[in-house]
Design a protein around this nucleic acid. Sequence first.
DNA 1: TGATTCATGTAAAGGGCTTTTACATCAAAG
DNA 2: CTTTGATGTAAAAGCCCTTTACATGAATCA
Lengths: 222, 222
Amino acid sequence: MNHSGRGWRRPGSYHHGNLKEALLEAARKLIEEHGAFGFSLTEAARLAGVSPAAPYRHFKDRDALLAEVAHSGFDRFAARLDAAWNNGLPTPLSAFENLGKAYLAFAREEPASYTVMFETGLAPGTEGERLPAAERSFDVLQRAAEALCRQLPEDARPPIKLVSLHFWTMAHGVATLFSQGGRAAGKVPMTPEEVLESGLLIYLKGLGILPDEGDGGESVSG
Amino acid sequence: MNHSGRGWRRPGSYHHGNLKEALLEAARKLIEEHGAFGFSLTEAARLAGVSPAAPYRHFKDRDALLAEVAHSGFDRFAARLDAAWNNGLPTPLSAFENLGKAYLAFAREEPASYTVMFETGLAPGTEGERLPAAERSFDVLQRAAEALCRQLPEDARPPIKLVSLHFWTMAHGVATLFSQGGRAAGKVPMTPEEVLESGLLIYLKGLGILPDEGDGGESVSG
DNA sequence: TGATTCATGTAAAGGGCTTTTACATCAAAG
DNA sequence: CTTTGATGTAAAAGCCCTTTACATGAATCA
C-alpha cells in the first residue's frame, strides 16, 4: 500500500502502484495544457514514469482512457450538481442559483474533463452505451426544473424535459463559450456566472416563475 | 483551368489543379465521419489523390489546415446569419426566428466546420489573432439583440452585449447538445429548432419584449 | 520456507502519421 | 525554346499507437 498518492511512481520500484489513476491525472493535465488534440498516450505514460506499453495493462486503448476521463468526470459532475441543488433547499430559487454556479465551477476547475465529456464524441463508450453518471447529471437539472415549475399553476406548466433542456443549453453554452481561450471573454465585462445567472433569471421571468419586477430585474441591469 | 470542381484530381495529370479546396473538403468529410480526433492529414491527402507531402504546399502544417476549415466556416456562417437576419425584415421577431434557424441549420449541415470553429481551440489562428468573420457572426446576433431591445422603453433595456451573449449561449448550447451522437437527442421528442425557438420565446417574454400571453406561450406548450 | 501464480511493467517491433529535404513536372513568361 | 516558379513526389527521421514475448515481484499455496 505504499502508494504515492498523487500519481508519481515510487522510486526504485518495478511496479508503479497507482498507475491507472496516475494516467488519468496525466491525461487531464495534458489536455488542459495542449487541448484535447494534443494528448498522447505515450506522453501520459512518460508523465507517470512508465513505458509506453504500460497503459495497456489498465486501458484497452487510447480512446478507452479518454472515455474513462469522461466517465469519472461525469461521476464528480453529477455528485457536485446534486450537492449544489441540495434537494431544492433552502429555497428552490437559491438552490437553483447554486446549481448554476456549481455547473460553471466544474467546467472551470476541470476543463479537460468537461471537454472530453461534451466535446469529443467519445463519452458514450466505444459503442453507444449510455453513461449512468451522465444521466444522473441531467436528472439533477430535471429535478430543479420540476421544483421550479411546481410554482406555476398546473395548466400553465411547460414540459419539464423541455425546461431542463433549456437550463442545460444555457449552462453548457456559457461554459463552452467562456472556456479556455474564451471566445466570449472580452466581449462583455462579466463573469460566466453573471451571464448565466442573468440569463436564467430572465428565462424564469418569462416562465412566470419570477415576478416581473423582482431582484432579478435589478441584477440584470447591473 | 481544367479543374475537377469538386476536389477530385484530373486523371493522368501531375498537378492536381484544385488541391487546397480538395483538402479542405476532405478534412470536413473525415471530421464528420471520424470526429475531430480522427482526422489525419495523410488520409485527407489520400482522399484528394496526392502524396502525404503535397498538403504542405498549401498549408504550413496540420493545424493550419484545421484553422482554415474554421476560418472558411466562419465566413459562410457569418454570411448565412446575416442573410437570415435580413436587417430585421419583415419584422424583428420573424427575422430573429430565421436567424435562430439559420444558426442551427449551419451547425447541422456543416458539423465538421462547426466543431472546428467552436470546439477545438484552434480557430483563433496559431497565435491568438482574432478572426474577422467570427466577429461578424457575433455582430449579427448583436444587431438582432439591439433591434429587439429597441422595443423596450429606454430605461428598461438590458446591456445589448449581454442579451446577444444570451442568444449565442442558447443557440450554441442547442447546437452542440444536439450535434452528432446527440447527447440530448432522445431526451425530448423535439427538434433542436423547437427547443431553441421555445427557449428564446420564453427569454424574450422575460425581457418584456413579448406579451405574457402571446402565440409564444402556445408554441411553448405544444 | 520455497515454488507457483497472476497482475503489472519492459523491450522490441510493425505500421501509421507529421514534417522536412531534395528532386520531378509542368504551365506560363520571356 | 529556355527559364522560372508553383506544385507534386519520394525518401527519411522522429513520434505515436499497439501488439507480443519476456521480466518482476507480491501474494498464495504446498
